[in-house]
Design a protein around this nucleic acid. Structure first.
Length: 591
RNA sequence: GGUCCGGUAGCUCAACUGGAUAGAGCAUCAGCCUUCUAAGCUGACGGUUCGGGGUUCGAGUCCCUGCCGGAUCACCA
């Protein structure tokens, strides 16, 4: 039984009887805490059909309900708001119907398919805080779609091609002395990142030297020997030069193994990886095809462009005058390849920072111009930057927060606080270690996901490592508490269904919150906003703790009430767990 | 300069898409462990929702305007 539709029906009936019309829309909202009741009908919009003042409208509907409906036992009217107090029998009915569902809130597979892309880092730098937000967001959105019945394909595009990787290769060749992850003890991505920085240093010095010797800045930037080496390597790579390709393969291999470790710690996986080196040629083909069809045009120097001025945008280059492809070119190829690989997907979601909004606007327009119907089903899940107290993260200024370091720090902090609280006395080492990770990563993930993805957010390393209050560990703790209740409840005899009884307000509120879970999941998925579920889980945990504090379970004499409270607790625990799962956060049995 | 975001308690964030006296956490202060886990609970303090107009029964939310912050507008990715 759906509480919401039940209420709507009764309220509709009341309007029908009283005013002769059934309004299309009934505005129902949760009652403010300061008034009695759980649901509130907003009566201002009804004055048109009732031909009465808001208060009188509310009064009339309220009176009709109290004398004609079993659902509503009491009402009160505040201005144009009609507050409804529901029958405890109804609450118990609602609870029983929720208890019956084994996988409450989760939609079984519907056959719909969707693709979610996230991560997609460059292969020349280690992952940082911004990637954490990206990965957690993408993973969570994918999980949310799974929860509402979709078959989700999680993918990423690996930018393994281009001048940036050649820069690291050039620097390694010049200064590396054959250094490897094994010989240096450095993670592969860190090692390659180190040479990317080396390149930058050497390059700057060379440019400066040239400028001092009288070369113009622009020319110096082209003539710097190390840059020439990198450009030469890119050319050789495109010509499949064996030595260059081998070096490229080796260094990329280091990066991937390094990234794999980081992804493993993050708890994210991918169903399929796309490599730029494998899609950019398809993109090039498509651009040339579009050129033939007259969708694009060629300038005198040979470069190929798309004209988007009619769409309020600019002209955009798609192939350089030397025929090589740009970022946009490979994204065209990748998109087409993906829809070929997965023809059943109804949507493709790109989890990419908001600094690329323009890029995706252009990409989707181009795909539409090329005649791909699915172009309108491409969605850029654009999220805000993560700022530090010092401002933006800048690799040049060394203010980048490294993903591996941060996760390790969070786990260490979780361990320190857990030990201090003496929580692991009864745990073996493996359980304790798993718990530290769960808490540390839970705190980090929740912190990054509780904020509306669209908004930029602040990360203060000193203050963000917090495990109390509006945090993941608070919710995990609530779950552990509930599990503890459930272990104790195993000794109590089971009942098949909860029998009607009088309820405490805390119990009503918990049931009310449970009824909202399915629609919250749908809302979070369709809005691409894990924050909605994060805050729902927090509110539910908060509400449960109030219940826990105020109402003893096992000290109660009435067996029906004990049964109700145990069942309610169990379901709250389940919903907390499922909510957290969609955020990629695990919850412990004890902590 | 054009375009697009954003501005809410000292700080970090909410606010069910136009509803009631704008809510949480952190920080500060005061209480609650002989009782199911105190990573918890209760209370206090804290607001001209950037300013100014407008729309209506009703605006943090919609429109106009000004101020502030950010992103973007590359033959970069």
């Amino acid at each position: 039984m759906k509480l919401d539709s039940l209420l709507r029906e009764e309220l509709g009936n009341a309007c029908q009887k009283l005013f002769g019309v059934k309004p299309e829309q009934l505005q129902i909202q949760p009652t403010n805490a300061e008034f009695e009741g759980s649901h509130t009908l907003v009566c201002f919009p009804l004055t048109r059909v009732s031909k009465k003042k808001p208060e009188e409208t509310a009064q009339a509907i309220g009176e009709w309900l109290t004398s004609n409906s079993d659902t509503v036992v009491r009402v009160n009217v505040v201005k144009g708001f009609l507050n409804l107090v529901l029958n405890d029998k109804v609450w118990v009915q609602v609870l029983n119907s929720i208890l019956k569902e084994d996988n409450y809130g989760i939609t079984p597979p519907t056959g719909d398919e969707i693709m979610v892309e996230y991560s997609s880092p460059n292969t020349n730098k280690p992952l940082h805080l911004g990637h954490l937000r990206n990965n957690f967001l993408g993973w969570s959105v994918a999980s949310l779609y799974e929860a509402i019945g979709y078959n989700v394909h999680k993918v990423q595009i690996i930018n393994d091609r281009g001048i940036h990787i050649c820069k690291s290769m050039a620097a390694w060749k010049l200064f590396g002395n054959g250094e490897t992850p094994e010989s240096s003890g450095l993670k592969g991505d860190k090692l390659v990142g180190k040479y990317y920085v080396e390149f930058d240093k050497a390059y700057k010095k060379e440019v400066n030297d040239l400028i001092e010797s009288g070369v113009a800045k622009e020319q110096a930037e082209k003539d710097a020997p190390i840059m020439k080496l990198a450009v030469d390597m890119l050319r050789k790579w495109e010509q499949r030069d064996t030595e260059t390709v081998d070096l490229w393969k080796m260094m990329n291999g280091w990066v991937y193994r390094g990234f794999d470790e980081t992804y493993h710690q993050m708890g994210v996986t991918f169903d399929k990886l796309y490599y730029e080196s494998e899609t950019y040629l398809l993109g090039k083909e498509e651009v040339l095809k579009g050129l033939e069809q007259g969708v694009f045009f060629r300038k005198e120097d040979g470069s190929v462009w798309v004209d988007l001025t009619a769409d309020g945008l600019d002209q955009k280059v798609l192939l350089r005058s030397d025929g090589t492809s740009v970022y946009m070119t490979q994204d065209i190829g990748t998109a087409i390849l993906r829809f070929r690989d997965f023809p059943k997907i109804s949507r493709q979601v790109y989890t990419v920072g908001n600094e690329q909004e323009y890029h995706f606007k252009v990409l989707f327009l181009i795909l539409a111009k090329l005649g791909y119907q699915w172009a309108k089903e491409c969605y850029h899940l654009s999220y805000g930057m993560v700022d530090l107290p010092s401002g933006k993260m800048k690799s040049r200024e060394g203010t980048v927060v490294d993903a591996d370091d941060l996760m390790a720090e969070m786990i260490n902090e979780a361990e320190a606080q857990t030990r201090e609280l003496g929580k692991i006395d009864e745990m073996d080492q493996a359980e304790a270690k798993a718990l530290f990770e769960m808490i540390g990563l839970g705190a980090l993930k929740f912190f990054l996901l509780k904020v509306d993805p669209k908004k930029r957010m602040m990360f203060n390393p000193n203050e963000s490592i917090q495990l109390q209050g509006h945090t993941g560990p608070f919710i995990q703790y609530t779950h552990a508490r509930i599990r503890s209740i459930m272990r104790k409840a195993a000794e109590v005899k089971k009942v098949n269904a909860i029998v009607a009884t009088d309820l405490q307000p805390q119990e009503q509120r918990l049931i009310h919150m449970l009824t909202q879970f399915p629609s919250k999941l749908k809302e979070a998925a369709t809005e691409y906003s894990p924050a909605l579920i994060a805050n729902y889980a927090y509110d539910l945990a908060k509400e449960y703790n109030q219940f826990y504090q105020a109402i003893p379970i096992f000290a109660e004499k009435d067996e029906n009430k004990i049964a109700l409270r145990i069942a309610l607790s169990g379901k709250v625990g389940e919903v907390i767990k499922k909510s957290m799962m969609t955020l990629g956060i695990q919850v412990p049995e004890r902590m």
